[in-house]
Amino acid sequence: MSSKVDTLRAAYQRWDDTRAADDSVWLDLIGDGFVLRSIGDGKKGMEFSAQRAGREEMHQYFAGLRNDWTMEFYRPDEFIEQGDRVVVYGECAWTNKHTGKTARTPVVALWKFRDGKAIEFFEFYDTAAAFAAAKPD
């Protein structure tokens, strides 16, 4: 197992253990020029998921996420490394604080590293489930 996989495995464990309360696990991982993208792309109901760059904007991403959602769990099951990239596959569940609805979804994260630091992150999940959970009845 590589140090990138070891680092990510520990970060995801901390993320799950704290139910998304500890941003430092991710902020310590990112390098200069970091870019975060999400399949939700900042659309209505998932505004927090707009593209972000750098530490301050990543912190805003987490603040927006926690403002609207409560993590139920985040479980990465598989880590696949090739060169400077790591793919993480797993499952997560989040409950929307405004609707009380929960979205449980497979999740895929694409990471790119340079000089031991993450410089790109792109997350994929079931957007239909997430948007449905964010939509009031």
Rank of each mutant, 00 (worst) to 15 (best):
S2T: 04
S2F: 00
S3M: 11
L8S: 07
L8V: 09
R9Y: 07
R9N: 10
A11D: 03
A11T: 15
D16C: 12
D16R: 12
A21E: 11
D22A: 11
V25P: 01
W26M: 06
L27P: 01
L29A: 04
I30D: 03
I30Q: 08
G31D: 07
G33T: 03
R37M: 11
G40T: 00
D41I: 08
K44H: 11
E47Q: 13
F48T: 02
A50H: 10
A50E: 13
Q51P: 12
G54T: 03
E56N: 10
E56F: 05
E57G: 01
A63K: 13
L65H: 08
R66A: 05
D68R: 07
W69D: 00
T70L: 09
E72T: 05
E72R: 14
Y74D: 12
D77Y: 08
D77E: 15
Q82G: 13
R85H: 13
V86T: 06
V87L: 15
V87P: 01
V88A: 15
V88Q: 02
V88S: 13
G90C: 03
E91M: 07
C92V: 05
W94G: 00
A103K: 04
R104V: 05
P106Q: 13
W111D: 06
W111G: 06
K112E: 15
R114I: 06
A118C: 14
I119L: 04
E120I: 09
F124L: 15
D126C: 04
K135D: 02
P136H: 13
